[in-house]
Design a protein around this nucleic acid. Structure first.
Length: 334
DNA sequence: AACCGTCACAACCGCATGCGA
DNA sequence: CTCGCATGCGGTTGTGACGGT
């Protein structure tokens, strides 16, 4: 599940992220945003490449990441969209709030792919059986039990799915077959008539929207009660225009508090001077995190032309805005 | 207890794409 | 238009967990 930490040629760490690294990355990104992934690890005190930081943030540390087992609805969406789009994992993941493309991809490869394959195999086999029975029987009574009940198995073409026009059927069957049992074959026939064949899984769209609508407001799944966060919006930007235009969206929560930080790995992160910015703010509380004066060793920053530019921009922003008050957090507070 | 195969998933890698200079 | 950089995306790999023998 985890990789053994190692270093590449340039001294960058690779492999499993430690709790300490997670803490540093989370603290930095939630405070300063992902303004430049390549430069970010240097300022965050991480001996990681920017790519690794980005991946770790997007796939694990980012707020509102949904973890744990997939619901049946989620799996149905994945199957439906994969059938429609193929391996476009990011697009598929976009339909599943809180799930990452990496997670969806893994889940597909580890369980859904095989399941779909088995279903298709079953479907093909049943198609053959049904075809042979059709040849043998002219009555259409496929299965008639001793008590008189009839079972009609309908195999759908691979590119089609069914829906119930009455809405009484579940949106998707866990099996590729639909079995309808009735005491009267005529009843069976009328049930079949209710089926609406479609070229795709469009019948699931409404269901999908239903899930999406309720997902973010379900405070029992996530502690969102006091969080104002737009999922598709970068939390913080070192961009004065952005910040000034988005003051209403700048309330933020302390992602440190939400960070899993549950890795059992030993803390192997390489300490360096660049990480010292965190030392003054270890274990901040949700209430006071953004109001704490930001004390850091900026001695290294003077050597960085980029950071100087950022500093100037922040200073300019500071003089123009009132971001640092009870309602908003402070982008920079030196 | 030791070995082995499989599973789950975090993380890496390389290529594609977008964008600004 | 071209180039270089940053980021996004999908394929693949590595590793711990776990169950079976």
């Amino acid at each position: 599940m985890a990789r053994t930490p190692s270093c590449d040629k340039s001294g960058m760490r690779k492999g499993t992220w430690t709790a300490e690294e997670d803490r540093k990355l989370t603290a930095y990104v939630t405070r300063y945003g992902c303004w430049n992934w390549r430069q970010l690890p240097k300022f965050a005190g991480l001996a990681r490449c920017g790519k690794s930081c980005r991946l770790r943030w997007l796939n694990y540390l980012r707020p509102n990441i949904k973890r744990g087992n997939y619901t049946q609805e989620e799996e149905e969406i994945i199957i439906r969209m994969h059938k429609k789009l193929g391996n476009r994992w990011s697009t598929i993941a976009a339909e599943l709030p809180g799930r990452t493309d990496n997670e969806v991809k893994n889940h597909w490869h580890t369980s859904l792919k095989r399941r779909v394959h088995e279903q298709n195999a079953t479907t093909n086999q049943e198609t053959k059986v049904l075809n042979s029975k059709n040849v043998e029987s002219t009555s259409g009574r496929d299965h008639v039990s001793k008590n008189g009940s009839a079972s009609l198995q309908v195999t759908f073409p691979e590119t089609s799915q069914f829906s119930d026009s009455t809405g009484s059927l579940p949106p998707f069957s866990s099996s590729s077959e639909f079995s309808c049992i009735s005491s009267e074959l005529t009843t069976t026939s009328s049930s079949i008539e209710k089926l609406v064949f479609e070229d795709d899984f469009d019948f699931l769209d409404a269901f999908t929207e239903h899930v999406n609508e309720n997902f973010w407001s379900d405070s029992e799944k996530f502690d969102l009660a006091n969080i104002s966060y737009t999922p598709n919006e970068t939390v913080m930007q070192i961009d004065t225009n952005f910040a000034l235009q988005n003051q209403d969206t700048t309330q933020i929560f302390d992602a440190c508090a939400l960070s899993p930080n549950q890795s059992s790995s030993d803390s192997l992160v390489l300490d360096n001077d660049l990480g010292s910015f965190l030392d003054a703010n270890t274990d901040p509380t949700i209430d006071d995190f953004w109001r704490q004066p930001y004390v850091t060793d900026t001695s290294f920053a003077a050597e960085s032309e980029y950071f100087s530019t950022v500093y100037d921009a922040a200073d300019d922003l500071w003089s123009q805005s009132n971001l640092y008050d009870e309602q908003h957090f402070c982008l920079f507070y030196f």
